[in-house]
Design a protein around this nucleic acid. Structure first.
Length: 977
RNA sequence: GCGCCGGUAGCUCAGCUGGUUAGAGCACACGCCUGAUAAGCGUGAGGUCGGCGGUUCGAGUCCGCCCCGGCGCACCA
């Protein structure tokens, strides 16, 4: 370039419309996000959203309450972010979509931690009320902490007035659910075997069990028959168990009536003996116990064992053989050790056969001592402990005697074989200790109860309701149905104090339980006013005051009553949230059932199920219409996050280090139905997408610096096909993103969004439209129509991003030239939808698909010439597209050769373009065959023309206007005007 | 043990009801631009679509078996 040309270039620079914007390229999230959040708080954005949508169709996501203990970590943080995304979407779609967060504040972990702070147990002088106050303080402390942590993610909601399960009104509503269940006959108090956590000293519900691996002794015990078996004397019944500690409670051996059994004679360690085992398992047992000289004396059906009695291996008294249909021949011996006090089925069998369910184990998992042990074992009168078992077990923790029992059985010649047995075993979810079965008196919700006026059991009604719910992912329906089909009655009582009391009394003399709907209602009244502490405040609320004669059933009037001291399972409390929140909160009560419950997929077993049970039983329907679950967050190794592993971090720390929008974008970009790896590096990886979105958008808005939509936007009809094509692609994007959101496939929506930015915008439209945008007349239509498209696209992109990158979208919104009618916050704006401008144009889609394929072929050749240093930028080149007849015919569908020739230079970013249909291109050396387009040859030559100093193109007419020697005709005209 | 989900380029994932040489983004390599510039554009390399067998004119896509990973269930006595 000559000196003159350089000077000219500088002179004309001011006539070029270069992009201008203050919208920063760098996100600076950790400064901007808190500032925006402050702004939202000060302008009460959430309140304004609520006011703005008042009266609109409701759409409610009902929040599942996280537990008020510990930090809000990545998992709970993700859950809140996903919820916020959905609520923001629904709000933009015009729904009235309040978000009322809640916390689960009662329960064992808090109780534990408070006791720990007190040195392990409640000080003698401390009242229960005082202790409960400490628990409440503890819970409230974590509510405040977690609230602050959640808010850093940019989540909007009624944070200042959340629902808490400790709120007296909430507590009263839990009791109302109980009252209704009681009234309808769903509640039973009964002695049954329940899962028992000896570490927590409480019964556990199914939802509170976690299966963990554990190795127990697997033992084969010989139960000596007291008489002949099928005519043969001195026969033992071989049983198998992995819980040797239950042997003291053994009261029967169960067999399958129809199964085939074998009566064997065998030699082991030089001694010969006889026993009965299932024929199918005989060889397995012989091999395991290394038996020799095995002879099958007889085959017999289980039924033939009727009437056989054996000597209890520890205590020596006679116990029966019984039949049971759960006896299987999969493993063991086919003869089942039955201890009705330690197993659900054993209990049922015992009940049927009139065998006592003895349970010599205390709440702490120790055998009772002394007389108590004797009593609990229900030993016969005059019993003598000849072998010293009594002293051996008494007072000991059951897990500590497992091995001792094994060796002692061996000493007595009762053990055929033992080996270690690894298996998964239910553990207490809070203390992570193995649970046991204990027979205790508990309160239950009867799942198979049929209430008056109904023909179906509650279980069946829940299953029917499950079918009415939309499950995301769809397999959730199968999973929860299977769980409901198989679940036992729900044990809702716990023997702790930090919770809502089960409002029942008993007659001190007779022991009879005193409860009816009136007494419960009375307590509900007191709890509403004073909170559940009334139950524990003996000084101010003695039983006479708690339940005055006036409200007692007649038979209890004037009697001495005492309070029962069970509390509700915390799942009962959270499961009642539909009643305590959805049906009771001023803002929500006319919006039941909720549109969506959204939690981790562990809640199929937990909150979803208990909510369904309680809502179907009391309201007759599911408390939610849709149910969305996400998988768990894991670390880079795919391991579940846990504090002890140190692979989990508090969400607010992540926000400070990485930025809320980046974390939100990450969670929106991954498939949340599969385990979600969460590490700083992975989230930083989402920064690629973030920057792409941000920069692409920045370019759009930087070219709108002189654009006011009301004044400058052109009508659809004034746009060129290329412009209309972008709008058509944008319309497709809106449809796809919206469809993905409706299916809650956030990551598919984000993919579409990023792809649109990188392909249609960045690589295609923006790249192609630069010349017109920069060099055409500032006010002319060639520039304004591109700005019109930019404006439409920039607007819809901000909106489509708004539920995810809530801060960035808001920041963008402030820089976007908007219609006067748009609100000041993007979160108050309307979700984009198709209209006369944003509309699908299939013909144009087809046209540009073809033309961009031609561009790709041209680019390939241009690239080669660049590497050969023949040309630099595209404007240095002239391109000839040699097309055969078939290709010309295809092209003709999209315009005349003249039209295409006029449009293609811009599209291909070259100075000149020729369509040549005449020659036999294959025979011409200067033409290069295309690789992906049939019938196309490409010829590229360096242009010999002078470049225009203003637009860089080599159009061949530079200097045609005398006054502007360095300009092409187009630029000269623009500059003149 | 039973059931569910997944196994596609180095990474994250698309591939609808089976149909031209399997796609995108990122990362990588090479080049261009320097008027999106701590940006942008182009080109390229990279995949036996977990394995084996089957159905079919044709399979990543359907069927069967197996392997790996994850999750759930439980009458594991």
């Amino acid at each position: 370039m000559t000196e003159d040309a350089k000077a000219a270039k500088e002179r004309y620079k001011s006539t070029v419309q270069l992009p201008q914007t203050d919208f920063p390229m760098k996100a600076g999230l950790n400064e901007r996000e808190p500032a925006l959040q402050k702004q939202w708080a000060e302008s009460d954005l959430y309140g304004r959203i609520r006011a703005d949508r008042k009266g609109a169709r409701p759409w409610v996501l009902h929040d599942g309450p996280p537990y008020a203990n510990g930090d809000a970590h990545t998992g709970t943080g993700m859950n809140k972010i996903l919820k916020d995304m959905v609520v923001k979407l629904r709000t933009m779609q015009g729904f009235d979509s309040p978000y009322v967060p809640g916390w689960d504040c009662h329960g064992l972990p808090i109780e534990h931690n408070v006791l720990k702070e007190l040195g392990g147990k409640k000080p003698e002088e401390m009242t229960s009320v005082k202790l409960r106050e400490l628990c409440l303080d503890y819970a409230n402390g974590y509510v405040n902490k977690q609230r602050g942590q959640f808010k850093t993610t940019g989540t909007l909601g009624r944070w200042e007035k959340p629902y808490l399960t400790t709120n007296p009104v909430y507590e009263a509503n839990v009791l109302r659910v109980f009252r209704d269940l009681y009234h309808k006959g769903y509640i039973t108090r009964a002695k049954r075997p329940v899962h028992w956590s000896w570490a927590a000293q409480s019964a556990l519900a199914e939802a509170e069990l976690e299966y963990e691996d554990r190795t127990d002794p697997s033992i084969y015990v010989l139960m000596k028959a007291t008489g002949p078996v099928a005519g043969v004397e001195n026969v033992s019944l071989l049983i198998w168990t992995t819980t040797p500690w239950t042997m003291p409670a053994n009261r029967a051996v169960a067999v399958a009536k129809d199964a085939e059994y074998a009566l064997l004679e065998y030699t082991q360690a030089g001694k010969t003996a006889r026993m009965v085992v299932a024929e199918e398992l005989r060889e397995d047992i012989v091999a395991r116990a290394k038996l020799e000289n095995v002879k099958v004396l007889k085959h017999l059906k289980g039924a033939e064992l009727a009437g056989v009695k054996y000597s209890q291996p520890l205590w020596g008294f006679e116990c029966p053989v019984v039949f049971a249909d759960y006896v299987t021949l999969g493993d063991g011996t086919g003869l089942v050790h039955t201890a009705p006090g330690h197993g659900k089925e054993d209990f049922e069998t015992g009940k049927r056969e009139g065998i006592p369910a003895v349970c010599p184990v205390s709440p702490t998992g120790q055998y009772y001592s002394g007389d108590r042990l004797r009593e609990e074992l229900e030993l016969p009168a005059g019993f003598k402990d000849e072998h010293g078992w009594f002293g051996f077990i008494e007072g000991k923790l059951i897990w500590k005697v497992n091995d001792g029992i094994v060796s002692k059985l061996r000493e007595h010649g009762l053990l055929l074989h033992s080996e270690p047995f690894p298996h998964s075993y239910p553990h207490c979810w809070r203390t992570h200790t193995p649970v046991i079965f204990r027979v205790t008196e508990q309160w239950f919700v009867n799942i198979d109860h049929v209430e008056q006026g109904e023909s179906r059991t509650l279980r069946q009604r829940i299953l029917d309701e499950i079918k009415q719910v939309q499950w995301f992912p769809a397999w959730g329906e199968k999973r929860i149905s299977a769980m409901v089909e198989n679940r036992p009655d729900w044990c809702i009582s716990r023997q702790r104090f930090w919770g809502i009391p089960i409002p029942a009394f008993y007659d001190v003399e007779s022991g009879e339980t005193c409860i009816d709907t009136e007494t419960v209602d009375h307590v509900i009244g007191l709890v509403t006013q004073h909170g559940s502490n009334v139950w524990y405040d003996d000084a101010n609320w003695p039983v006479e005051k708690l339940l005055p004669d006036a409200v007692r059933p007649d038979k209890f009037k004037g009697r001495k009553l005492a309070k029962m001291d069970d509390i509700f399972d915390v799942w009962f409390e959270s499961g009642a949230s539909h009643r305590a929140v959805m049906l009771a909160d001023d803002e929500l009560k006319d919006k039941f059932p909720a549109n969506l419950y959204l939690e981790g997929d562990d809640q199929h077993r937990g909150w979803f199920q208990v909510s369904l049970i309680l809502s179907v039983a009391t309201q007759g329907k599911s408390p939610f219409k849709q149910c969305l679950t996400s998988a768990f967050v894991v670390d880079e190794k795919g391991e579940k996050g846990s504090k002890s592993k140190g692979n989990i971090w508090a969400i607010d720390q992540g926000v400070r280090d990485l930025g809320a929008d980046l974390i939100r974008l990450y969670f929106a970009s991954v498939n949340t139905s599969e385990p979600i790896p969460v590490t700083y590096d992975l989230i930083r990886g989402a920064g690629d997408n973030y920057r792409k979105l941000r920069n692409t958008w920045r370019t759009l808005v930087a070219n709108l610096f002189d654009f006011t939509p009301e004044q400058h936007a052109l009508a659809y009809s004034e746009l060129r096909p290329l412009d209309q094509w972008v709008l058509s692609r944008a319309a497709a994007l809106i449809e796809e993103v919206t469809a993905c959101w409706e299916r809650y496939e956030f990551h598919h929506a984000m993919r579409a969004l990023v792809q649109f930015c990188t392909v249609e915008l960045s690589a295609q439209y923006i790249d192609v439209s630069k010349d017109a945008l920069y060099c055409e007349a500032k006010e002319g239509p060639a520039r304004r129509r591109i700005q019109t498209v930019y404006w439409h696209v920039a607007t819809l992109l901000v909106k489509l991003m708004a539920p995810v990158t809530v801060h960035t979208a808001e920041e963008m919104w402030q820089y976007l030239p908007k219609l006067e009618s748009e609100p000041d916050s993007v979160h108050l704006a309307a979700w984009p939808k198709l209209d006369d401008t944003l509309r699908a144009m299939p013909e144009l889609d087809k046209r540009y698909k073809l033309l961009f394929r031609l561009k790709a072929e041209s680019d390939r050749v241009l690239d080669r010439l660049r590497k050969e240093k023949v040309i630099g930028k595209g404007y240095d080149a002239n391109v000839t597209l040699g097309c055969n007849a078939a290709l010309m015919t295809e092209l003709a569908q999209h315009g005349t050769p003249e039209q295409l020739q006029a449009e293609l230079p811009e599209l291909l970013n070259v100075s000149k373009l020729l369509l040549d249909a005449q020659s036999d291109h294959g025979a011409l050396q200067e033409f290069e065959p295309a690789t992906d387009v049939q019938g196309l040859w490409v010829k590229v030559v360096a242009s010999a023309e002078q470049a225009c100093v203003r637009c860089f193109r080599r159009t061949g007419d530079v200097g045609s206007v005398k006054e502007h020697a360095f300009l092409c005709a187009r630029c000269a005209e623009v500059v003149e005007a």
